[in-house]
Nucleic acid binder design. Structure first.
Lengths: 336, 336
DNA sequence: AGTAGTTAGTTAAGCGCTTAATCTTAAAAA
DNA sequence: TTTTTAAGATTAAGCGCTTAACTAACTACT
């Protein structure tokens, strides 16, 4: 049978309180007894029960992470970064994939409530606000990661999508492009923000983003392919296209190549996210990188603060994305 | 404050035992009291504490999943399938990414021990066997997923890699290819198995896989690129190449195209895993699909059995992979 | 020597549940 | 009517820890 704190205490000839204290470095214990207890713990290979500790200590050192889909490269990387940060801080992560279904969201939130997680990080746009109300009623700190929804009272850590779009726009303009297009996920808040930043950058240079060059899509392979084909079928194509994310960019590149276009000579493409797709596609995809590691760091920090103070500050932290230059955008500026 | 079972009991005018019973559908309770209790639970929005239940009930309904890297598409899909299955069965998953480091493996296993998970699924080849000994000492059921290591006593659920290689070989031969190559991860057991199956299929047709066409690599972008370049630099190239996984296949396709080769006309490629890379690359990658969903199902089933019976059967289940035909392999058979 | 302060450790009360043992009542059997 | 039996509910112990309150033994100081 697994040894308990009683076994250790008996073996060491001290009370369980003493053992507990050396375990947690609380209270005062002489170097001598500490040594002895530690040695016995080691010898018995005793591992304190996190469950029991949670029941008394009121903290489970576990946080719930909700993502829409782990198989999506971007969220996989988010999960990885968060998981990494969590481990560093001594927390474990319960991973929940909502599959974009609010029913799952609800299910999972209930599960997390039951498991008594210390906090929740949501990397998915909430459909149904009701479950979140419960969270806040229960004082479970919530942090929105990479999504921004003001209606849910919580801390927010996200990429500055407007800025991301702006950077992309500015870059393309600097490279001499004047006839621009965008494939965008208008359904998502982040998509609209990217579009708006993009337009803003163009507007500053007096360039108009024509409505017919703004193609709305969703982030599935088939829909993206359709969107790409649609864009390529226009008789007067843009010279450069900004896409909602890397996946779409890669699909656009493939479709363009099939249509006989060379990248970037005949069509420049710039993506978003800097996922592995950007790295392996040929030519390498110039893209806007979300600072995932940093986002994860801030997210954790904010969440832990909320947990400790048991109050949600309601801060919103927006980190700036960064341009990663590869080879998918042609420089027209000297040709001009 | 969060309501406890006491609050519910008091409100309903019954004992906490009664509440516990309606919660768990154990013992006998009259329809009337059940109704009443349920109604109160609902009204108070009471959620039983999983922590307390775990302390008494001896089960946490949580299992640990170790993967080397979630950002790797294949493992992301594994994680997703497992997570999905877990949810269906009322379990939560603690996700652990070892990053291929045995130190992390150890760290996580300790964490999982402390968190008292009911079982562990490992989707990573263990380096250091010591931590696993601890698990089995502690009677924590372990299941190896998609890796096969006999030295660790546990159940195993994996893809039949030998068969996968065999299927790939058979297919290429059927398509008329005679000069074959393989880019393989020899360091990994699965890689060696795939190679051996591949060779077996060729041998049956009297075809020899030349040693110089067997390129050893590891699954990182740079190494894969080098391997691809190496293969392409051989003066007499194979007509078809089987790669250790889809990532490598995609990289090979890109490198080949850069070298002026058309796919599949000048070089046929067949991958392994059927990840998203296979789907989005152009031309679509013919590949060997691991039956991830099914693997996850079996894995869970086996693990739950072990948990219930608190004994590890030591079964090994090997599911056959399946060929997914896309467009990256040229049919030479009628040209011949 | 007497009192206060420190230090090291102990006692005991929970935390929120599950469950075996027990009790109560009313219906069925004798 | 008395005895069984079964159904429905309660009591209470205990899961493995944390922590506030307390005690005992020193040390330091007037």
């Amino acid at each position: 049978m697994k040894p308990t704190i009683y076994d250790v205490a008996k073996e060491a000839g001290v009370s369980i309180a003493t053992v507990s204290k050396v375990l947690n470095n609380t209270g005062r214990i002489s170097e001598k007894t500490r040594k002895k207890v530690l040695e016995i713990i080691n010898r018995m290979d005793y591992h304190p029960s996190g469950v029991a500790a949670a029941l008394t200590g009121k903290k489970t050192f576990t946080i719930g992470v909700l993502v829409p889909d782990i198989a999506n490269t971007f969220f996989a990387e988010v999960a990885r970064a968060l998981e990494n940060k969590a481990r560093e801080m001594g927390y474990a992560i319960i991973l929940c994939a909502t599959d974009y279904k609010s029913e799952r969201e609800r299910e999972y939130l209930d599960l997390l409530l039951k498991k008594q997680v210390d906090g929740v990080i949501m990397a998915t746009e909430p459909n149904d606000l009701e479950p979140f109300r419960k969270l806040s009623e229960r004082q479970v700190p919530l942090l929105l990661f990479s999504v921004d929804q003001l209606s849910v009272a919580s801390n927010v850590v996200t990429t500055d999508n407007v800025r991301g779009g702006y950077i992309a726009g500015q870059y393309l303009v600097k490279k001499g492009h004047r006839r621009l297009g965008m494939i965008v996920e208008r359904k998502r808040q982040s998509g609209r923000a990217r579009l708006s930043g993009f337009q803003q950058a163009l507007a500053e240079e007096g360039i108009d983003l024509e409505e017919r060059f703004i193609i709305d899509t969703r982030s599935t392979i088939t829909e993206a392919r359709q969107a790409a084909q649609h864009l390529l079928s226009l008789d007067e194509k843009p010279t450069a296209v900004f896409t909602a994310n890397d996946l779409i960019a890669v699909i656009l590149i493939n479709e363009a190549r099939k249509a006989g276009l060379r990248i970037p000579e005949d069509l420049s493409v710039i993506g978003f996210d800097n996922t592995i797709h950007a790295e392996i596609v040929d030519p390498g995809l110039t893209t806007i990188a979300q600072p995932i590691e940093e986002l994860a760091s801030y997210a954790f920090h904010q969440l832990l603060q909320s947990i400790e103070r048991s109050t949600m500050a309601g801060h919103r932290i927006m980190l700036s994305p960064e341009l990663i230059e590869r080879a998918s955008v042609l420089d027209l500026s000297n040709t001009k």
